Amino acid sequence: MKGRRMWSDKTPSLELPLILPSQAQKHVTHNEALRILDVASQLAVRDGPTPTPPVGPTTGDCYLVGTGATGDWAGQDQSIAQWTGTYWDFIPPKAGWRADVAPTGATWRFDGTQWEPAGTYVDQLGVSTTADATNRLAVLSEASLFTHDGAGHQMKINKATAPDTASFLYQTNWSGRAELGTIGSDDFSVKVSPDGTSWITALSFDATDATVSGQSVQQSPTDTTPGRLMRADFGYGPGNLVGIVSETAGAPTGAVLEYGQNANGRYVRFADGTQMCWHREAAVSPGWATWAFPAMFVDNNYAQTIMPNPGLSPRCCVTGSKGVASVDFAVFIPTNGNQSAATCDMSVIGRWF
């Protein structure tokens, strides 16, 4: 009833015994209340919940009694046990009570049913700022430190499925400017944005073979956009300066320079399409002969030189029909010559594409 005091023999929170009117031996009740306060106030225990009493406890030591208590603790599950020096005294905890484990600094909380580690589940945590339903952990600080307890430290960002996102987002005035991580796939990407709305994938590393793509990389063999990174298959270096030349739609796709030789002579091909062939043919009989090129030309629009080796008796060479794979030529030895055959130096320059 409103305005009427309801008397009880215990306090409502800690259940400390109260001294009642006309009570005899008041000191007993008073001392019992002090005993409970001695344990419950600034509760410090020697260990987390355990079902087994320790051996050789020290007077005043407190323990959290775990489930399935045995020995002197039997039947006192979840209680707080204090060694008085001669026997164990037990105090039942209330929901919300916290206990500090003195040797380790760990904290345990009684949820009304059992003791559980405090801080294992926190719905939101804000450090010098306010957390919310999206940013459940929020930190306002000049820096954040994650260090190691041993050899190293690993930060883990997990996502449920490959199409989800696990990334670091960098912002300016709460607007995104750069992001890196597995964004929408399991490929590792680096993205940038000028306004937080339009995004460009600068680099992307394929999760299967680690090959790289993105707008920061050459887009084609002819891409010379300033600031882009050179692709190994588009650019030139010690590994592909000399090799097999190739082209696609007139654009070089292979090495810069190709050299080769066979029974028909030697040749050099350049990445721009230029080709040179040369050969020395000995003992060419008078009359018409054919030189099969060591490498084919794209057409017969080439310049050629076929002439006798200097220093020998005068003779002349003339050319006949021209083809992409060979050329016909004639050797004429003057009647006053003393050789029946000629040594000819031959060269031709044109295009291989």
Results as ranks from 00 to 15, higher is better:
Thr107His: 14
Trp108Leu: 01
Phe110Thr: 04
Asp111Cys: 11
Gln114Pro: 01
Trp115Glu: 01
Thr120Gln: 15
Val122His: 05
Asp123Gln: 14
Gly126Val: 00
Asp132Asn: 15
Asn135His: 15
Arg136Gln: 10
Arg136Phe: 00
Val139Tyr: 05
Ala143Asn: 15
Ala151Gly: 01
Ala151Met: 01
His153Glu: 07
Ala162Gly: 06
Asp164Tyr: 04
Ser167Gln: 08
Leu169Tyr: 04
Tyr170Trp: 11
Asn173Tyr: 08
Trp174Leu: 10
Ser175Ala: 12
Gly176Glu: 01
Gly176His: 02
Gly176Lys: 01
Gly176Ala: 04
Ala178Asp: 02
Glu179Tyr: 06
Thr182Asp: 04
Gly184Tyr: 14
Asp186Arg: 03
Asp186Pro: 01
Asp187His: 06
Asp187Cys: 04
Ser189Tyr: 02
Val190Glu: 06
Lys191Pro: 02
Ser193Gly: 05
Ser193Asn: 05
Ser193Arg: 03
Pro194Arg: 06
Pro194His: 08
Thr197Gln: 13
Leu203Tyr: 09
Asp206Pro: 01
Asp206Glu: 08
Ala207Phe: 10
Thr208Ser: 13
Ala210Lys: 11
Gly214Thr: 00
Val217Glu: 11
Gln218Asn: 11
Gln219Ala: 15
Pro221Val: 09
Asp223Thr: 09
Asp223Met: 09
Thr225Cys: 07
Pro226Lys: 13
Gly227His: 12
Gly227Phe: 07
Arg228Asn: 14
Arg228Asp: 14
Ala232Gln: 10
Asp233Gln: 15
Phe234Asp: 14
Gly237Pro: 04
Pro238Trp: 12
Gly239Leu: 13
Gly239Asp: 15
Asn240Ile: 05
Asn240Cys: 08
Gly243Gln: 04
